[in-house]
């Protein structure tokens, strides 16, 4: 997506700030979140890029990004952010925006393997559903 006046002036930033309660606009792109993220290698957008795209209003790029669903909410970024931002809340904000749309669920019961049903702790299954479906 291209950065245009429309993207910069869009409501995306306001929207995600409302959902997350985090001041996304204050990110200075220092990259410390990405530098410490344990899931980095599976991400197509790095955490600091998600923040930047949000500042620029590039909603589609964020929404189709795998990063939102790879973030494990481990709070490592939040613990180190120099601007006192909690990126796990920002990621959740974007997830919620998507989940609340029709057909937004990304985890379905039928997806669970018999092995998972037998061995995985309840905690994992419930958490998964809480995070990835409505």
């Amino acid at each position: 997506m291209k950065v245009t006046t429309d993207t910069i002036c869009s409501d995306l930033l306001k929207e995600v700030e409302e959902y997350s309660g985090e001041k996304v606009a204050s990110c200075i792109q220092c990259g410390k979140c990405s530098g410490g993220c344990p899931m980095l290698e599976a991400m197509d957008l790095l955490p600091h890029q998600v923040m930047r795209l949000a500042q620029l209003g590039l909603k589609e790029d964020i929404m189709k990004s795998k990063t939102l669903w790879v973030c494990a909410s481990c709070f490592t970024c939040a613990a180190r952010c120099q601007r006192d931002l909690d990126l796990s809340k920002v990621m959740e904000g974007f997830r919620v925006i998507q989940l609340r749309q029709k057909g937004g669920n990304t985890m379905h019961p039928r997806q669970l393997t018999p092995e998972q049903l037998k061995d995985a702790p309840q905690q994992a299954i419930i958490s998964g559903f809480r995070k990835y479906s409505k």
Binding site: Q29, C30, G31, K32, C33, S34, G35, G36, C37, L40, L46, H48, Q49, T76, R80, Q82
Partner: peptide, 22 residues
């Protein structure tokens, strides 16, 4: 490298730096 370092830890007698080039 433009990017703040995430973590520094020892590995053998050297130091590993994990970060990102933003």
């Amino acid at each position: 490298i433009r990017g703040q370092v995430g973590k520094v830890y020892p590995e053998g007698d050297r130091l590993i730096i994990r970060g990102v080039d933003s």
